[in-house]
Simulated scan of single mutants.
Amino acid sequence: MQIKVLIFACFVFLCTMVKGQVDSIIAIPLDKSVLSGVGLKKLSLKDEPEKEFYQKRLYHGDDISIYVVSTEAWNNDFRNFWLDEFVYMFHGQAVVKPQKGKVQLFNSGDYFFAPKGYTGEWEIKTGNNLHYELSVISTTRADSTLISENIEHKLFEKSVLSGVHIQLNDNGKYTEILKKGVELTVMLKAERPSKWQIEPAKEMLIQLLSGQVTIETLAGTETTFFTGDFFIVPNGLEGIWKSDGHGLIKYLTIEKTRLP
């Protein structure tokens, strides 16, 4: 009898521990100081030790990792670029010259996608200053034999992000896949002001393009995000999503590609 009581007590304790761990999972804002370029650490590149190169990791998760990267002007020639990368350019200009296809130009304020398998030049222009960007990659690499169907860089057009084309469904929601790569998927989502239950979440980075979102955990902790904010929804987060705004809440999501 005592053994059964002890086993039951251990089971209850473990369940309580697991529940406590789930309750403590919260949405994580990206550090605005680092996003502003403050506190980046200078690193020495093995192949180019003389180059001015800075980096700081903002998040290292199960599925995605997020960095702020800064460098002086450079020109690299890639053969079979080894990962998918989502980039938001804070300062500088990128000129991409694929081996096959048209030259592409990306400027400060642009969102773009660099696909696994890209081959060609990638030039960063900075003037007399340093380029810096937000970089999102998957934490683990996909099968090395897999490359994106389209290996051109993709600009996420401001005309699309403006959301004029958005038509909400009967549930007041909208989802558009902007890019599905081998490792990362980028989506544009929108909704009317609403409140809904978050099922155990899949890890993703969100940037709120318009409106306000408050996430309440199972433990009752609330975190509110506003237009322009970047934040992470970790794996396993549960709680309540509450959105509000002037008619439409709109946001980008970047997550690991779920291959069939």
Results as ranks from 00 to 15, higher is better:
residue 114 A to T: 14
residue 137 I to Q: 08
residue 158 K to G: 07
residue 108 S to C: 07
residue 129 N to P: 07
residue 104 Q to G: 05
residue 130 L to Y: 08
residue 141 R to P: 07
residue 167 Q to D: 11
residue 132 Y to Q: 05
residue 156 F to T: 09
residue 106 F to K: 01
residue 166 I to Y: 05
residue 133 E to V: 02
residue 110 D to L: 07
residue 119 T to C: 09
residue 127 G to M: 10
residue 109 G to S: 04
residue 160 V to Q: 13
residue 166 I to R: 04
residue 130 L to K: 11
residue 100 K to L: 10
residue 107 N to L: 02
residue 110 D to V: 10
residue 150 N to S: 11
residue 106 F to N: 05
residue 139 T to W: 03
residue 117 G to L: 05
residue 143 D to T: 07
residue 129 N to G: 08
residue 151 I to V: 12
residue 165 H to E: 10
residue 156 F to V: 02
residue 132 Y to G: 02
residue 135 S to E: 04
residue 136 V to S: 04
residue 128 N to Q: 14
residue 126 T to S: 13
residue 163 G to T: 08
residue 114 A to V: 15
residue 112 F to E: 03
residue 104 Q to F: 06
residue 119 T to Q: 03
residue 103 V to R: 13
residue 118 Y to T: 02
residue 160 V to A: 13
residue 147 I to D: 01
residue 161 L to Q: 04
residue 158 K to A: 11
residue 127 G to K: 08
residue 123 E to L: 10
residue 156 F to A: 08
residue 102 K to R: 12
residue 134 L to Q: 12
residue 140 T to P: 02
residue 133 E to W: 12
residue 101 G to A: 10
residue 128 N to A: 10
residue 116 K to R: 14
residue 128 N to L: 15
residue 117 G to D: 00
residue 149 E to F: 09
residue 109 G to A: 08
residue 121 E to I: 04
residue 142 A to P: 08
residue 134 L to Y: 00
residue 133 E to Y: 13
residue 118 Y to F: 13
residue 120 G to T: 07
residue 149 E to A: 15
residue 141 R to F: 08
residue 135 S to Y: 00
residue 137 I to G: 00
residue 116 K to Y: 01
residue 124 I to F: 05
residue 121 E to K: 01
residue 142 A to T: 14
residue 148 S to Q: 01
residue 142 A to W: 09
residue 120 G to Y: 08
residue 129 N to S: 09
residue 154 K to H: 14
residue 140 T to C: 06
residue 113 F to W: 10
residue 160 V to Y: 07
residue 143 D to I: 04
residue 156 F to N: 03
residue 115 P to I: 03
residue 155 L to G: 09
residue 151 I to G: 00
residue 125 K to N: 06
residue 167 Q to E: 10
residue 103 V to D: 05
residue 152 E to Y: 15
residue 168 L to P: 05
residue 147 I to A: 04
residue 147 I to G: 00
residue 115 P to G: 01
residue 159 S to R: 13
residue 106 F to M: 13
residue 128 N to G: 15
residue 155 L to A: 10
residue 114 A to R: 01
residue 105 L to E: 07
residue 119 T to R: 01
residue 165 H to V: 15
residue 129 N to L: 04
residue 113 F to I: 13
residue 162 S to H: 05
residue 161 L to M: 09
residue 142 A to E: 09
residue 167 Q to R: 15
residue 106 F to Y: 13
residue 165 H to C: 10
residue 166 I to E: 09
residue 133 E to N: 06
residue 125 K to S: 06
residue 146 L to N: 06
residue 145 T to S: 09
residue 157 E to L: 11
residue 159 S to M: 12
residue 106 F to H: 14
residue 109 G to H: 07
residue 152 E to H: 15
residue 115 P to H: 00
residue 112 F to A: 08
residue 148 S to G: 12
residue 140 T to I: 05
residue 102 K to W: 03
residue 102 K to N: 10
residue 148 S to V: 01
residue 100 K to M: 12
residue 115 P to Q: 06
residue 165 H to N: 15
residue 100 K to C: 09
residue 128 N to S: 14
residue 123 E to C: 01
residue 155 L to E: 14
residue 130 L to T: 13
residue 160 V to T: 15
residue 132 Y to I: 06
residue 130 L to W: 04
residue 122 W to L: 13
residue 157 E to W: 05
residue 123 E to F: 00
